[in-house]
Amino acid sequence: MFVLDQQSLVQGRHAVLNDISLEINAGEKVALVGPSGAGKSSLLSWLWQQHSDDIALCPQEGGLVDILSVYQNIYMGGLSRHSSAYNLINLIRPWSLRQQEVYTIAELLGIDETLAVSPDRLSGGQRQRVALGRALYRNKPIFFGDEPVSSLDPKQGDELLGTVLSQHKTAVVAIHSPELALKHFTRVIALNAGQLVGDWQTQDITLADIKAVYSGE
């Protein structure tokens, strides 16, 4: 489904990703691990370009529009399903059918109380839930996330990640927590300084293997 064959990505004079070869098949749930600046985000956006229409993307900064309500922010995931006129009307007067759909997702994520609030008034954790809500509302078979639960406490992050992954057939998620990577994913890809330093099936490795990536061994 996603294929990279000895490819490199150069930004300016600096190689962000170096000689990467990998293949990801439908049905796989892949965790991208590695220290900050390892090239995880670049790899994600590179892969995203290959099938952008089938992917629900949850970028690192969330891409929230601060002054619109949480409802509208989640609804944005479904913009491509409707005509422009329909979307414009929704901006002024939300359709009740869509409200129900969005409500269902918000409830799943525990933010149903905040639907009318704008994200600039929410905590970092709540904002991440909104961003996840938008990704879920995209209704796509593939989920791409860039640190999607980094602002949540470990327990909440664990639960939400499980929820989101269960709604998608395939997933590629950049994640810092080795525990979550092991628990929720079928495959772990490790990057360091733009190099592919590990590519394992989850059942073959232990926490120590992932932690080793961060200590640079």
Partner: peptide, 21 residues
């Protein structure tokens, strides 16, 4: 639950956008 859900849920709470509007 969906059937008890009404649009009133959207009215409560403060949205910066709504206030500016």
């Amino acid at each position: 639950m969906p059937q008890t859900f009404s649009s009133s849920v959207l009215i409560k709470g403060i949205s910066t956008g709504a206030r500016l509007r």
